[in-house]
């Protein structure tokens, strides 16, 4: 009986007008663009939830360390890369009418081993993210390390992608090859595909 009745999306209150059978409702709600989004800023334990349109405004107003740079081809210069402990370097890149969050995360385990993870997340839906490809590149002294992938969407979790190593992943030895005076340059390019 439930499958013969159309149910409104749970996020109708924030503007979704879709009605669908019960067995399709859960899948739709996972990707519904009217779903409230958590703050994507890593490492801050921010509890904010809001609409997709409000995410960038929230990041700009409440996380003022997050700088935005315009352009599809930029250099993300992570400073003090050799600090001991866990750190995040976070910024936003604005191009093609979209904001992309760029994250470099350094994790340190109990043995003092350090791992670095760099990833790009679109402040947009999965469907919008699939229209882009990002490239992260380390370059120095004729060495080059490149990662290319589809950006995560706001529906996807950076922590999960890092856990799965679905990002640019390198260790301290690699940092020593590419850093300059304690700063690491990551060349970021975003293209439409």
């Amino acid at each position: 009986v439930a499958n013969s009745v159309l149910f409104p999306c749970t996020y109708a209150f924030s503007g979704c007008h879709i009605t669908l059978p019960y067995n399709e409702k859960v899948d739709h709600e996972k990707v519904c663009k009217f779903r409230p989004y958590p703050c994507p800023c890593p490492g801050t334990l921010c509890k904010w939830l809001g609409s997709l349109e409000a995410v960038v405004r929230h990041l700009t107003n409440e996380h003022d360390h997050v700088i935005t740079l315009k352009g599809e081809y930029i250099i993300f210069l992570a400073t003090n890369i050799n600090l001991i402990g866990g750190f995040d370097w976070v910024m936003m890149q604005f191009c093609y009418g979209f904001h992309f969050m760029l994250v470099l995360q350094k994790q340190e385990n109990r043995n003092g081993d350090q791992q670095f993870f760099a990833i790009v997340q679109l402040i947009g839906t999965r469907q919008e993210a699939e229209g882009f490809v990002y490239r992260l590149e380390l370059r120095r002294h004729r060495r080059r390390l490149t990662w290319e992938a589809t950006p995560l969407s706001i529906h996807e979790n950076i922590a999960t992608a890092i856990k799965n190593r679905d990002c640019l992943n390198f260790d301290t030895g690699t940092v020593q090859l590419f850093e300059e005076n304690g700063d690491l340059s990551i060349i970021v390019s975003i293209n439409m595909c």
């Binding site: 250099i75 210069l77 600090l83 402990g85 994790q107 340190e108 700063d183």
Partner: peptide, 24 residues
Amino acid sequence: RTYRVPKEVRVEPQKFAEELIHRL
């Protein structure tokens, strides 16, 4: 050939939340 010179931004490190540090 024209080479594009990308803009560069210095990004300062933010301390990771303590409870997340040892999740490797």
